[in-house]
Amino acid sequence: MKALEVKNLSFKYLIGKEKVFENLSLSINKGELVAIIGRNGSGKTTLCNLLRGFIPHLTQGDLEGDILLYDDSILKMDLSDLSDKIGYIFQNPFIQISGIKETVYEEIGFGLENLGVPRDEMIRRIEEIIKLLKIEDLKDKHPAELSGGQRQRVAIASILAMDPEILIIDEPTSQLDPKGTEEIFEIIKILKEQNKTIILVEHKIDLIAEYADRVILLNDKNIVFDGTTSEILSKEDVMSYGTNLPQIAKLGIEYNNKVEKLSKIPSVLEEAVEVFKDKV
């Protein structure tokens, strides 16, 4: 079942000289974890903003085509109706945090307050999320005194508390250390198991290789590659679009080109162990 569908979309920002997208079509199924990759400036965040309705509701521009959430056009829906269906986790946690709440606990409750969730239910959800994200030690702190990584976790918590069915997550780990990053991906995995539809923009390609179902590569106003994760992330061409490949795939390609042909280019560790176990 299609959760989101983009139909022949063209878009240009009001102040932009060039179109960001030209006749782009795409559909995302319910329960799918889709990673959007591409060089900076290829439109990843713009696409997220369109799927969330921030464009054209908050930021205007020249838009053609349509975007559907199930059967309803996002372009015609009310932004506030969208907010409990699609959650958006911003790229920059310094922007996401409200700045008007004095503790992390209240910050996480901010969205729920605005949705008018009853007090008991609010407390239950906040505590559940705090536990899920392992931020018990932060709950009484002031959001302004958190480190970059801590803020990123709080930003994620405040959206998950609203329990949206679709999640758009724009570079959730840019400020996080490797362990914190894996923890976020583990949370994303749990959300996927809860059958959430997840659209993820992320540069940490090795982790996309491990967790995503599908990869979409954006370049020059449209989609260049769209396919299963292992299919796309073993293509050498991906790197010519300013996007890295997993280390494991790079090793496979290098070996394939310089030593001997491989039957399959691995993109994750387990596949590489299979490929190389008889060679070492």
Binding site: K179, E182, Q247, I248, E254, A272, K277
Partner: peptide, 27 residues
């Protein structure tokens, strides 16, 4: 709380020696 980089991890899982840390070393 750090992890081995991917190529080192692969070398470790394959029980290779010589402290491999990059693609060049692995090949």
């Amino acid at each position: 709380s750090l992890k081995q980089p991917y190529i080192s991890k692969l070398a470790h899982d394959l029980k290779m020696k010589n402290y491999i840390i990059d693609i060049e070393g692995f090949i």
